[in-house]
Computed example of a mutant assay.
Amino acid sequence: MKLTAEMSLYPLQEDYIPVIKSFIEAAAAQQEITLVSNAMSTQVCGDWDPVMQLVNSCLRASHERFGKQVLVCKFIPGELEIAG
């Protein structure tokens, strides 16, 4: 089963751009995931378990490296056409 997740990361610090870039780079490194990023969010699409694992691993790694942050995530069951 396919899953699409739309994520927006809000680091709770002044220098937030490196935190967001690091999160997106980690997500983009995942195999078999389609990723599109824009100024407002990052969308990932793939099989259900790898998408959920991506959200878990990327948020955990980002928190361990950079500290407190908020991740707003919308989950849409199914595969959406996401345009870059």
Score class of each variant (00 low, 15 high):
I20E: 06
Q43C: 13
S62V: 01
V72Y: 12
Q43D: 09
E32A: 14
R60Q: 06
P11Y: 03
Q13I: 00
M7H: 05
G78A: 02
E79S: 04
A29P: 00
E64R: 07
Q31M: 11
Q69G: 15
I24D: 10
K74D: 01
H63W: 11
I33F: 04
L3Q: 10
G46L: 02
E81Y: 04
M7P: 12
F23K: 03
C45N: 05
E6N: 09
I33Q: 06
V70Y: 11
L9H: 06
S37D: 02
A28L: 00
M52W: 03
A39Q: 09
Q31E: 15
M1F: 13
C73A: 15
K2F: 15
T34S: 13
E25Y: 07
S22T: 07
Q43G: 03
Q30F: 09
A61V: 00
A5I: 07
R60M: 05
M1C: 15
K74M: 08
A26T: 13
E32G: 07
W48P: 03
T34N: 11
C73P: 03
V51T: 00
N56C: 11
E81S: 11
V36K: 06
L59R: 01
E6I: 14
N38A: 04
D49T: 07
L35D: 05
Q53L: 03
L12R: 06
E64I: 04
T42Y: 06
S41M: 12
Y16R: 09
E79Y: 02
A61E: 05
F66K: 02
V72H: 14
A83G: 07
Q53R: 10
A5W: 08
M40D: 12
L80T: 02
L80S: 12
E6Q: 15
S57W: 10
I20V: 15
R65T: 12
E6D: 13
C45Q: 04
V70P: 09
C45L: 03
L12F: 12
R60H: 07
P50L: 00
F75Q: 06
A5C: 10
N56E: 15
Q43E: 12
F75C: 09
P50F: 07
P11L: 01
I33V: 12
A61W: 05
Q30V: 09
L12G: 00
G46Y: 04
M7Q: 03
